[in-house]
């Protein structure tokens, strides 16, 4: 039995493969949210943006037969969602969290409404690179078949980390997020900076959606996201607004999410459903473990409405 010859080693391998496969949308959504929150605003609507991005990418890919055009279209609508959020939040006494929840419901509803005709047809998938071609084991080949978007996401995390301290845009983003007053004293308009940051965040989150519908699971249906956009927000806080931390945390979540299927595949038949809940339990545990009633969060952008 050569095919299952790696036995129990299949579990860590499957968790590794799962981490990479499942984490990609988390990476994009959390990077998008990190940029938005670094500018001092919270966009809870990214769940809606994610699902709407998934629908748009799938529909455009079905029609044009090009998955990459689908990704671009998703980015464009994601940016539009971000601009709507950023524009509404510009008005005084508007709460960004409430608008985010409204935008989330809006995005979900609109995606379900417009996406109905695209549940049946099949779209072309995004390409993956076979890093495992050197091996004879199909498990290893499958695990090392890595999607291009994952590599893009990982590279973006590094670029954002570098840019936040070495470019003008990065410094301006941090200034606005840390102190609206200081930003105004420098002649910057915090609302404009936040509008762009929210738009960029929306575009990134929509790429995560495109990955969902065009690669893994690779189809469009209404249950495609199951709250990943919301969990990514929690992940940003856990990662302390650090882009590299975001992608590491996303990998951790992805690995946890792959635990259930991996155990099932090696023949654990009892209780594996419990492991399906692992990412959610992990969210709770991490939030409890890293919060404290007696001290404030280190590294939080000062102008964020939850840290005031």
């Amino acid at each position: 039995m050569e095919a299952i010859g790696i036995g129990v080693w299949g579990v860590p391998l499957a968790v590794f493969a799962g981490a990479i496969r499942v984490s990609t949308p988390f990476i994009f959504v959390s990077l998008g949210e990190a940029i938005t929150e670094r500018s001092g605003r919270i966009n809870l609507g990214l769940e809606g943006t994610l699902v709407f991005g998934a629908m748009t990418a799938y529909a455009v890919a079905v029609v044009t037969l090009s998955p990459w055009l689908g990704v671009l279209a998703a980015m464009a609508v994601g940016a539009c969602f971000g601009i709507i959020h950023g524009f509404i939040c510009k008005f005084p006494k508007v709460n960004d969290i409430a608008i985010g929840i409204a935008m989330m419901q809006f995005g979900l509803g609109l995606a379900f409404f417009l996406g109905k005709p695209f549940i049946q047809p099949a779209a072309p998938r995004l390409p993956a690179i076979a890093f495992g071609a050197w091996s004879d084991l199909p498990q290893i080949q499958a695990a090392l078949n890595i999607n291009v978007l994952f590599l893009v996401g990982a590279a973006l995390a590094l670029v954002f980390w570098w840019a936040s301290r070495n470019t003008r845009v990065g410094l301006i983003l941090r200034v606005v997020g840390d102190s609206s007053d200081a930003a105004r004293a420098m002649g910057l308009n915090p609302d404009t900076v936040r509008l762009f940051a929210t738009a960029a965040g929306g575009a990134l989150a929509a790429i995560g959606g495109a990955y969902l519908s065009l690669y893994y699971p690779g189809s469009w249906n209404e249950g495609i996201s199951s709250g990943q956009g919301l969990m990514a927000v929690a992940l940003v806080i856990f990662a302390r607004w650090n882009p590299i931390g975001c992608s590491l945390a996303a990998l951790l979540f992805g690995g946890a999410g792959a635990l259930g299927p991996a155990l099932q595949s090696v023949g654990v038949t009892k209780g594996y459903y419990l492991f399906y809940a692992a990412p959610y339990v992990l969210t709770l545990v991490i939030m409890i473990a890293t919060s404290s009633p007696t001290r404030s969060l280190a590294g939080a952008p000062g102008a964020l409405s939850i840290t005031k």
Binding site: L171, R174, D181
Partner: peptide, 25 residues
Amino acid sequence: HFTLVPSLTGAENLVISRARVPTII
């Protein structure tokens, strides 16, 4: 009240407060 940005270093605060900041520092 201080108008410096707390999470930035002194050098970052000085450079970003200039009227012209290069795109890549």
